[in-house]
Design a protein around this nucleic acid. Structure first.
Lengths: 109, 109
DNA sequence: AAAGTATTTGGCTATAATACCAAATAGTAG
DNA sequence: CTACTATTTGGTATTATAGCCAAATACTTT
């Protein structure tokens, strides 16, 4: 795989995670598979919106789905994603320390 | 911190990484700090574009910068980011296996 | 077959991200 | 102070993303 291409793929996977609702779903899925209806309950948006978020995650290779009767169940395909989220915690934590020392806040966009 | 708010912050940090050029810069910075001019050389876009990408990374708390003479040096603030990238490799790897078994490709957007 | 439920898809609008150019800023050297 | 270099900022056109509604699909139950 070309280097250039690899960065594009990786960015695509990461971008798929880069949304509060999708993160919330990933978190929820960390303890096992869930149906779309349950995920909707968790994130609280319109069903169609939730479905589109799930499509993004699936296209990125982060989740897989299976149908059972009327319901569709999604689950994480690559568990290491979760370890990553801990790292993000560390970024936020570093930032909290830094804010106390009067540095640049994370939200200063 | 509110749960809602936390997911927003995390998504912001992740979104900051979700771009091929920014990933490339993070990778380059894994072995130590670099000046903007060097980073531009690596990603190959316009200097102003590179500068704006670096601003995104800085605002997200992923890098810090220091000025030395005319040049500005950037470095990673939270090294665990790198471990995460290995996980993304795993996503791609899973996907490669899956493609051989005729599943959904990662790039099918 | 008809009605009902869970999910996906299409279409639209609003908002945000990206990339480039030109101009501004900050520091250095003559 | 002037010219020069590295970097940032402002402006703008283009493209991508998000969320909502309505309609379509897929299954189940009656």
């Amino acid at each position: 795989m070309l280097d250039e291409e690899m960065y594009n793929y990786k960015a695509q996977v990461i971008k798929a995670m880069a949304h509060p609702s999708r993160l919330k779903m990933i978190d929820a899925l960390s303890s096992g598979e869930l149906c779309v209806c349950k995920l909707q309950e968790i994130v609280g948006s319109d069903m169609s919106t939730v479905s589109k978020h799930l499509l993004v995650l699936r296209n990125a290779g982060i989740v897989t789905s299976r149908k059972e009767g009327l319901q569709v169940y999604y689950k994480l395909r690559v568990p290491c994603i979760l370890g990553f989220l801990n790292c993000i915690d560390e970024v936020l934590h570093e930032d909290a320390k830094c804010r106390m020392a009067v540095c640049k806040p994370v939200a200063s966009r």
